[in-house]
Every structure is written in C-alpha cells, then in structure tokens.
C-alpha cells in the first residue's frame, strides 16, 4: 500500500508541478511520428502530444515522416534536428529490425534516449482446425522439420519475424531453416491463417484479439514474461520456451543535446506519462504501460540491439 501512496503523491506533485514547471514551457514542441497517419507510432505521437498540450506545452504538433520502417524519420531526426531541444520522435522495436535489414547509416545509438512508453505483447496462433494443440506440438514440429512450419506474419525483419527466430532458437530448431512468410499489412496474414494457407501466425495480441476470443484462431502462447491480466493465454516461458519479447514503443530526442536540455525533455515526458490523461489514453487504447525512462531505457536499446542483431543474423537477413 505504501508504494501506492508514494506513487499517488508523486502523481499529484507531477500534476500540480505540471502547470508551473519550466520544462513544459518548451516552445513549439514537435513530435515526429516516423510513419503515416493512423498506425501505432502515429497514435502514440498524437496521444502524447495531446496530453502534453493539455498540460500547457506550446505547439505540440505531430509531424508524419513515414518510410522504411521509420528509418527515414530517424535520418531526419539525426541529420536535420540535431541539437534542437524541442523535438521528440516516437520509435520502437520495429525500427531496430529495419535499421539492420536496410543497412541504415543512422542507428539508434546516435539519438538521445528519453523513455520507453508502452508496448504490446505478441501472440503465436494457429487456425482453429489445426492439429497443433499446444505450443509443445508446434515446438516439436519446428524442431523436427523447420521448413514445414510456415509462419505468417508482418514485414521481414519486424517484431513478428524476430519472435519467430527467437522461438526457433530457444526450442533448438535450426534458425537458418526458419520458414517465415512476410505479408504486407491490411490483414493479409490474418486471411492466410484463417484460410489455413500457412501453419501458424504471429502478430501483436490486440490485432487478432477478436478472432482469438471468437475461437477462429487458437492462441498457443503470448510473448510476455508473465501472464497478462484479462488475457487467458499461457506465456512462452510457462511452456518451457525461454523467450520474452515486447513490441515496445518509445520516445527519443535528437543527438547533440546538453545535459540541461536532456533533463528538461525527460521531465516533460515524465510529467506527461504520470498524468491522469495519459493513464486514460493507455486504458482507452489497451496499451500496456512499459514506462522506462532515461539511462535504463538507453541500456534496453543496447541489449535489444544485441539480441535482434543475433537473431536476424541467424535467420540470414543480416550479415
């Protein structure tokens, strides 16, 4: 209980401070969403901008810079926004894969990490009629004959692909023989799974939650470390596969900021994330709170980079 009261008082402090703190007086704050309107990064940017605007930040415009898994936006942040203390950009795990597969010259160690904000866990599903009943069945088949398990999912090198590689690695299958079939967005992967054209599918939980609830898809596992409230799906870890993966979304700032500027941005984001308005956003959108600010987030980026590079090399997408 004690933790909660501290938390509540911090929240109250942040809220009252929110209106007065100079950190929020950042002029003409801009948030870059390195994707088109409507997607997850765009929604994150817009929600954050709205929350910040309600707390008194000026400007708060969202700028969409789509392309190449977000690396076009990343390049803009690093080249054109360098040293600007009033620019933020949304990013996430997907960008890491895109940087590696595109052999991008700009990388995530060049930016100023601010905080991981939210995340979503991945599910591994099979069609309701599949003979594979459990994750163990899938693992056994994957190990015996990796080519026969065609996984359908999102873009090559994206989070879904990374999870397929990590699972193959963890169950002792030959990762280089992974048969992952990328589909472009717009539900093509879902159609291929519902129609039984691929053996299994991987995606963020919320995208297929409806089909899982209605029983058209059978969820074999979820990629979170622990069971998620309200989601009756066993984790990979529970089922003896030592993998956990969150498709996280975060906020970063341009390179070349001095300590005071970095601190100001950190405080602004911190105040916003701890506001009631942000909590409402998380609840409305079903986003899992994975707030992790500052240096810890920097370390996470480094660790995820090592893991992603390793698995994509194993798959053969990156050399």
């Amino acid at each position: 209980m004690k933790r909660r009261t501290i938390f509540a008082s911090l929240l109250a402090l942040a809220l009252t401070a929110g209106f007065a703190t100079p950190a929020l007086a950042l002029d003409d704050l801009r948030i870059i969403a390195p994707a088109g309107p409507g997607g997850g990064w765009d929604q994150t940017a817009r929600s954050l901008s709205e929350v910040m605007a309600a707390m008194g930040a000026k400007g708060g415009t969202v700028e969409n810079v789509p392309g190449a898994g977000g690396t076009v936006g990343l390049a803009q942040l690093i080249d054109q926004e360098k040293g600007k203390p009033n620019v933020l950009m949304v990013n996430g795990l997907v960008m890491m894969g895109a940087i590696l597969t595109n052999k991008s010259t700009v990388t995530l160690d060049m930016v100023t990490p601010i905080a991981r904000l939210t995340g979503e866990y991945e599910v591994i599903v099979v069609p309701a009629a599949s003979e594979l009943k459990t994750m163990a069945d899938l693992a056994a088949k994957l190990k015996a004959e990796p080519g026969a398990v065609a996984f359908g999912g999102g873009s090559a090198g994206g989070t879904d692909h990374i999870l397929a590689g990590l699972v193959a690695q963890a169950v002792g299958a030959d990762v280089s023989k992974l048969n992952y079939v990328p589909f472009s967005g717009g539900g093509e992967a879902l159609a291929a799974i519902l129609g039984g054209h691929v053996v299994a599918g991987i995606s963020g939980y919320s995208e297929w939650a409806g089909q899982i609830k209605s029983g058209e898809l059978r969820a074999l596992a979820i990629s979170s470390a622990e069971r998620q409230p309200g989601i009756d799906i066993a984790t990979l870890k529970e089922q003896g596969i030592d993998v956990d993966l969150a498709n996280w979304r975060a906020i970063v700032a341009p390179p070349g900021l001095d300590d005071a500027q970095e601190k100001a941005l950190l405080e602004t984001v911190d105040a916003a994330v701890k506001s009631d308005a942000w909590k409402k956003v998380l609840m409305d959108k079903n986003w899992t709170d994975l707030y992790l600010p500052g240096d810890d987030f920097g370390k996470l980026i480094a660790a995820e980079n090592v893991r992603t590079t390793e698995v994509l090399k194993g798959i053969g997408l990156v050399q």
């Binding site: 190449a68 898994g69 894969g97 597969t101 595109n102 052999k103 873009s155 090559a156 990328p182 472009s184």
Partner: peptide, 8 residues
C-alpha cells in the same frame, strides 16, 4: 524494400 526478404 523487397517484401519477402526485407532487402532494398
């Protein structure tokens, strides 16, 4: 980007 391999 080639959709199947992610290669430019």
């Amino acid at each position: 980007t080639d959709i199947l391999t992610g290669q430019p």
